[in-house]
């Protein structure tokens, strides 16, 4: 290949990385092998330092999650606010792309010499847990739950006890009862093995999710030939379509049977319960986010309004 881009992902190939794999395939096809995306799972950087690597120019493309380091990318953390009410991967994709296109967001990421290419839409987090299932909000009192960042705050708001530990210790902590519940997206519940010992899961708590964009090094993007750049940028929609259909297909299709085969009880909350939860959490979290990020010089209110205005439309 004439042009090789190194792409820094982490973990292993999974539903969460299929859009990048697809993008590599499409780019190679469209350029007749002239441009190649060389995907590395963890070999080039630690996931929390992927933005640093982009900024340095060590690799040309990377994926990261906004919640790993709020101060690095305050603008996109708006997408991680609790109880936004995003209901599908398609909607998550749409709102992410609109927010990514906002000039203030692009300026925020340009500090890292990064250009936002596409989101990695994830479904809402939900809890898998052991012991007595929390059937009402009041049952959350004292529940030890592994939840970080915004979802941790949401848990604290209903008097649960957010407990911090690295994702690799989660399985054992749940097995051992150090925490009684874990908040993850379905694919992570499966890959971190919480479904092995879990007894119940919340189907519709939907407290929020994480936002994990794929970015390119701005200079490298500018240095591409016209043909290569068109091949890259022109393949993004198709890659995302593919990602969503695989996630909805493979992961979500496997999720139900996994729950059934492991004998995990599904807990659903009534509308009143959810409304009460949302009221306790969403408003204060949004207000705090707007205040913090206005102080950082972002048009926080505008971003928040832009986002909430799109939801459900």
């Amino acid at each position: 290949a004439e042009t090789t881009w190194n792409v820094s992902l982490w973990g292993k190939r999974r539903a969460f990385t299929e859009h990048v794999e697809k993008l590599a395939e499409l780019v190679s096809e469209k350029t007749n092998g002239e441009m190649k995306l060389n995907i590395s799972y963890g070999g080039l950087s630690k996931n929390k330092e992927n933005l640093d690597g982009i900024s340095i120019g060590a690799f040309e493309m990377a994926q990261f999650c906004a919640g790993y380091h709020r101060d690095k990318n305050p603008s996109i953390t708006v997408l991680e606010l609790p109880f936004l009410g995003v209901s599908s991967l398609e909607e998550e994709r749409k709102v992410s792309q609109v927010i990514y296109a906002h000039p203030a967001v692009q300026k925020d990421l340009s500090r890292w010499n990064a250009t936002l290419l596409m989101p990695s839409p994830l479904p809402q987090y939900n809890l898998v847990g052991v012991g007595d299932a929390p059937k009402t909000l009041a049952d959350y009192k004292g529940l030890t739950v592994r939840a970080t960042g915004g979802i941790g705050k949401a848990m604290a708001a209903v008097n649960a006890v957010p407990t911090s530990m690295s994702a690799t210790e989660v399985r054992q902590a749940l097995d051992g009862g150090v925490v009684k519940a874990v908040a993850f997206a379905p694919h992570a519940h499966m890959s971190f093995g919480t479904v092995e010992s879990g007894k119940w899961w919340t189907t519709n708590l939907n407290p929020g999710t994480v936002n994990c964009p794929v970015v390119a090094n701005t200079d490298a993007l500018a240095a591409l030939s016209e043909a290569n750049r068109n091949a890259l940028l022109g393949s993004i929609d198709e890659s995302l379509d593919y990602y969503i259909s695989t996630y909805n297909g493979k992961t979500m299709d496997a999720w139900g049977p996994t729950l059934t085969s492991k004998g995990i009880e599904s807990i659903s909350y009534g509308a009143d319960e959810l409304a009460a939860f949302k009221e306790a959490v969403a408003g204060p979290a949004a207000a705090a986010w707007i205040a913090d990020n206005t102080a950082k010089g972002l048009p926080a209110q505008e971003l928040y309004d832009l986002l909430t205005g799109m939801i459900g439309k």
């Binding site: 380091h69 911090s164 102080a295």
Partner: peptide, 27 residues
């Protein structure tokens, strides 16, 4: 030093441009 400098910003609250995952302590 460059790694430090990327996480430091005089104009930001707590001079922080990079923070920890759970409770967002400046790095």
């Amino acid at each position: 030093w460059a790694h430090f400098a990327r996480s430091f910003d005089f104009s930001a609250p707590m001079w922080s441009r990079d923070s920890s995952m759970d409770i967002a302590i400046p790095l």
